[in-house]
Amino acid sequence: MEENKHTLLHYLMLLPGVGFILMFIGSSIFLTLAQSFGLFSITGRSAFTLSNWAAIIQARESVDSLMFSLKMGILSSIGTVLFAFPLALFFRKGGAGKGMLGSIIKVPLFIPALVAAFLIVNLISYHGLVNSVLLRLNIIQQPMRMLNDRFGWGVVFIQIWKNLPFVLLILMASIASIRDDTIDAAKNLGAGYWSILFRIFVPLAMPGILVSMILMFIKAFGDFPIFSVAGPIYPAAISVRMHIMATLYQEWDQAAVLGVIIIVTTFFVIWAYSRFAELVQGEE
């Protein structure tokens, strides 16, 4: 009885947060889902059909787009965390000049994604700074064509540039709660650097690592501006494909299908990341 009362109270306490979000998001998600089956269509027609799903699943463009966005999302989220984690460890202890450094590092946080994309594209363009410097140093004879590369390295680079401080902030917050006595105890037991890193820091910081990977994935997977400036000519990212589907081909319902796919895929990757985090933590 006591237990139940508590749970009820706990659910009520979720209302201002989760309830607030559901109040606004619920019907939007429902409408997207309904539209993907041809109901409440934006064009005014409304009849249940599976043809939109069939059309999207059969088109190689959509599959390519999904795989490409997935690749970019996973690479960006892992890449940013790999860069940010050592930095977060470095910032764990204070030291001369670190305050200044911490502030400079955070600057890209305040640069909108679209602007970040165009600034970096500026650097790697045909006669951009990178090519000019390499030419002058005689490292290359001909400027390299790096814009809109087929693999998507440009996108990954911009994502890391823009979001390094974002992930750093989360990781610093989660590392902050690791106490020195834990580490001292490990040291006294003869643990080396690597074993302290992998047996203490990584597992204890795992909630933070997980959240950064999840939030970074959402950002990179669903991103529109960076893909549209720096992404490859083909395939289009799934968000771009969704936009093209609706505005160019007027296939609003098929765009809704892509929207549902974006949401479901994101959930799936979050689940996979969470499982991975549980495994890592479970080892301890």
Binding site: L14, G17, V18, I21, L22, F24, I25, S27, S28, I29, L31, T32, I42, I214, L215, I218, K219, G222, F224, S239, M242, H243, A246, A255, L258, G259, I262, I263, T266, F267, I270
Partner: peptide
């Protein structure tokens, strides 16, 4: 719940623009 709270940032920009705006 942990997944649900992420929905506002998972929703594609077009869904936000066309549907969420209607809710508001």
């Amino acid at each position: 719940f942990m997944l649900v709270v992420l929905l506002p940032i998972i929703m594609p920009g077009m869904v936000v623009a066309l549907f969420l705006s209607r809710v508001f």
